[in-house]
Design a protein around this nucleic acid. Structure first.
Lengths: 205, 205
DNA sequence: ACACGCATACATACATGAATGTAAATGCCA
DNA sequence: TGGCATTTACATTCATGTATGTATGCGTGT
């Protein structure tokens, strides 16, 4: 069954990535061979090696399908003018990110990144997580700095401390939830914790 | 060279576990073979298979050396009467746990558990993490419930929400710190965030 | 419009290396 | 001297990368 049309080739590539998500999630990255992935997609290893250089290349291609740009979310919410200020923008952005995380593919891939892989040759999940984390932290820091400059934060909490508090709370919620996604709703329960934190650190008239 | 005295045999066992910590931390669990561990300890695989059933058995033995019983910490602090009440007890217990986590062996092993292994045959880090997490959460929940009963929590925060907030913040701090232990001090910076949270949710006269 | 040729999209086969578990061999302490 | 701690040797399994086979879609020339 050789050469298909270009569209069909792209479809098999996607199918291979879909299969990778399934098998990685079930067996862990290091335990799954490219043979497993290929068979799960109804293909052979030849197809995998055609579309991807090796396992690491396939892994990164899988990650690329769920990139979520946080600054973009912030900008969107700012543009939509739903929020009452930088603190509310940050709060809504967090909830929106939770929403996105609960989408099946995003949930699967992040679970794989955080709980189903350890670093091999060219896959370094800790480094990848660090990059995601510091990206997130910088966005949060900028928002809190702005909020502080506008006098929206209570005096007892410096913007850096607020940053650490929110960032660690987000990280903890996401980790907890990804370990057991069915035990609670990230958006509901997590959102409640986030809302409470913002309530506590916001200056009220 | 064969048979040593009983004490020497025990020493080799510990040396093997020490070696396991080093190599697991450096290369990840699935990438390290029992041969690597044995050689790093100046032994051969035979020694490993004598003291441990297989890799999973060795892994769990490694974990057993750093068990920290949270309820025990709570009880100790309560007995020492340093704290002003359940909230302060919980706060001090958290800081004490941070202290223990910063000890080299504890840091190494927890890093391995969280960032250096994915599940293989009989090693299920996610399940192990879940057990640690729910253990921690229950301890926190009991403390907050007691604090609430004694009217120490502010009205805006229900004990369950406080539990989720503190627990996720602890989890997030620990994860962040374990990913990059040299970037900040868990006890210092993390402690500041924890202190701030307790300040915010405590009812003040 | 049609045949030709090449690049494409896979499948198959093979060589290599590495890790595991176990069985047998070996020396030392008690 | 016998059982304990450890090494050595061996058989098996399994994943990887590469090399090769192969049929087909697609552009090109006339």
């Amino acid at each position: 069954m050789p050469r298909r049309t270009k569209a069909e080739a792209e479809a098999t590539r996607e199918a291979l990535l879909d299969a990778a998500e399934d098998v990685f999630l079930e067996k862990g990255v290091s335990r799954t061979s490219l043979e497993h992935i290929a068979r799960h997609a109804g293909m052979t290893r030849g197809a995998v090696y055609w579309h991807f250089k090796n396992k690491a290349d396939l892994f990164h291609a899988m990650l690329d399908r769920v990139k979520m740009p946080l600054q973009q979310i912030i900008d969107d919410i700012t543009a939509e003018r739903q929020a009452t200020g930088p603190l509310d923008t940050l709060r809504l952005a967090t909830l929106h990110a939770f929403d996105m995380l609960e989408r099946p593919r995003s949930c699967r891939v992040h679970t794989i990144l955080i709980h189903r892989c350890e670093f091999i040759s060219d896959i370094n999940p800790v480094e990848l997580q660090n990059r995601l984390a510091s990206d997130c932290r910088e966005v949060v820091r900028r928002c809190f700095q702005q909020a502080h400059d506008e006098g929206l934060l209570i005096d007892a909490i410096a913007p850096d401390v607020a940053t650490l508090m929110l960032h660690s709370m987000i990280g903890g919620l996401v980790h907890d939830w990804l370990r057991a996604p069915d035990s609670f709703s990230l958006r509901e329960s997590g959102g409640e914790a986030i809302d409470s934190l913002f309530y506590l650190i916001t200056r009220h008239a």
